[in-house]
Amino acid sequence: MANNNQSLWHEFKKGLWDEIPPFRLVLGTCPTLAVTNSVINGIAMGLATLFVLLCSNISVSAIRKIVPSEVRIAAYVVIIALYVTVADMFLAAMFPPISKALGPYVPLIVVNCIILGRAEGFAQKHPIVPSIMDALGIGIGFIMSLIVMGSIRELLGFGSILDIKLLGNWFEPWIVMILPAGAFFVFGFLVALTNYLSRKKATETHGH
């Protein structure tokens, strides 16, 4: 039993660093770049993705023995599109301003490779409980990545985080940070930072 709990914990934890989606696996890059011009947009996008990922992992895992393997990808995509429709309608009804700010990027969760990747790579081979842990880990890792990207861009682009002004009037906002170019720069440097940290860790463990 202890062993079982440990492996569940492992499925959860891997998404937070070892397989953190945008920086390690370079999946889900489109929303990571597009909606992180402010922290709040990033959080909303992350939560919507987590919801879809969780539901699709549960569904795919539940039907994994019934679906013939020739049509599985098509079946997964339709399942994902269904949950995305739910998430999109929920956002539009409850949080209209956020839904408006995210625009077509909510429906584009359908083709977010993280979700199809987890369905194909994990949920179709594992029972429901590990699939839930996997979805939670990857989803929370994704939200963390979006928050980091969003904080850097909002801080440098507007001098604020979550609309709270942190830098005084002396600060000249870097307009480029909220433009598309800034998204590419911040993402590029964060990937480099991830590489640097994991290299350091590798030399510390294997170095001597």
């Binding site: 370079v26 800034g182 998204a183 590419f184 720069f185 993402f187 590029g188 990937v191 590489n195 640097y196």
Partner: peptide, 13 residues
């Protein structure tokens, strides 16, 4: 540390 995806993203910027 910049090789691969990282430098590609910066060029895209």
């Amino acid at each position: 540390v910049f090789q691969g995806i990282s430098i590609t993203l910066i060029i895209a910027g």
